[in-house]
């Protein structure tokens, strides 16, 4: 019996790999790519597509730095894309000569994270800010003040993320401190703000945010725009705050790691998901905005039903901090939670 199982297991390992013409290995944000698109691509080009997910840019960077990751496509955020290009971890696949490039919305082309746009094609963008449960909180949400200096219904009932990245960025926006500040005095102000806020924070966690928010366990949570939109579409009484100080922005791009085995298939895939009809499917799945020109009529999340995706306030993209600035961020965070 054991032998039988072992044989089946071995057969399953090798069986799937030889079935298709070629293969394509994706390493992207967990559950970011629409399964429908993967299936469609796989059928159309007879390619076996394997998808692995990560939950932080650092995970991806670590894997690429280690070399020979075995992946053909990854999707870093802008600040990590910059590091990866500078460190020579990515293939120059002449992205600006592709059809995909022509379909990128003007304002997302040739930005500081890839000026020549030779290394990447963007796939999704969004922002991070705070959201409220409208059953639990009915007050104003137009300023980060209500989140960082909570009063009344929000006191003791707000939740932060467990990592400093976006949260510190939002605090910097609120205080008017530039991202990646290397000035200890400025960062001390960030720490003081977060320390004062801590008394009102119920939990620092990046897991199960939807559960906490939908059930009303907390009244406000630091969160991402698309997740709020998706929870709201599923019927949860949640709303994304448009804070006048601005929102912390991000944009993820498809890239090809250096030495990828299936470069041609990777380019094919990038072209494929960047077509207007497929970009629309992708946006409807992921619930984050698409930097591509999409088919407006087929969009599931519009300005009316998903205002969170159409910010009316400035969105400031996070930056890659110098080691000195990063140490200040880490120091703020460890002193906050010491």
């Amino acid at each position: 019996m054991t032998k039988f199982y072992a044989a089946t297991a071995i057969a399953m390992c090798f069986g799937s790999a030889v079935a298709a013409e070629g293969s394509l290995n994706l390493y992207v944000w967990s559950e970011s790519i629409a399964p429908e698109l993967i299936e469609k691509f796989s059928n159309e080009y007879d390619v076996q597509v394997n998808v692995d997910g990560y939950t932080s840019n650092e995970d991806l960077l670590t894997k690429l730095q280690a070399g020979s990751s075995g992946y053909d496509i990854a999707s870093p955020s802008q600040h990590f894309l910059r590091i990866m290009i500078d460190a020579g971890l990515l293939e120059n696949f002449g992205a600006n000569t592709l059809d995909a490039y022509a379909n990128i919305q003007e304002k997302y082309r040739n930005q500081w994270w890839d000026e020549t746009q030779e290394y990447s094609i963007p796939i999704a963008y969004g922002s991070a800010g705070f959201s409220v449960n409208t059953d639990e909180y009915t007050g104003p949400t137009d300023s980060l003040k209500y989140f960082f200096e909570p009063e009344g219904e929000l006191a003791g009932r707000i939740a932060m993320l467990s990592y400093p990245d976006e949260v510190v960025g939002a605090a910097q926006l609120y205080l008017g401190v530039p991202f990646c500040s290397e000035d200890p005095a400025e960062m001390k102000r960030v720490l003081d703000l977060l320390m004062a806020q801590k008394e009102s924070v119920a939990v620092y966690s990046s897991d199960n945010i939807e559960g906490r928010m939908s059930s009303g366990e907390v009244a406000a949570h630091f969160w991402w725009d698309g997740e709020v939109v998706r929870a709201a579409a599923a019927g949860a009484p949640v709303e994304y705050a448009m804070t006048k100080e601005g929102l912390v922005g991000w944009i993820d791009s498809l890239v090809i790691p250096k030495g990828a085995q299936n470069r041609e298939n990777a380019i094919r895939f990038i072209e494929f998901v960047s077509k207007p009809e497929n970009a629309t499917i992708q946006m409807n799945h992921y619930a984050h905005s698409s930097p591509m020109n999409v088919i407006e009529a087929e969009k599931k999340y519009t300005e009316e039903n998903a205002p969170g995706l159409y910010p009316t306030v400035p969105v400031v993209m996070s930056r890659t901090c110098s080691p000195k600035a990063q140490d200040l961020v880490t120091r703020v965070w460890t002193q906050l939670l010491q």
Partner: peptide
Amino acid sequence: GSLIQLQFGGGRN
């Protein structure tokens, strides 16, 4: 445990 995680992740140290 979380301190080590922070240093290998976001802390980049």
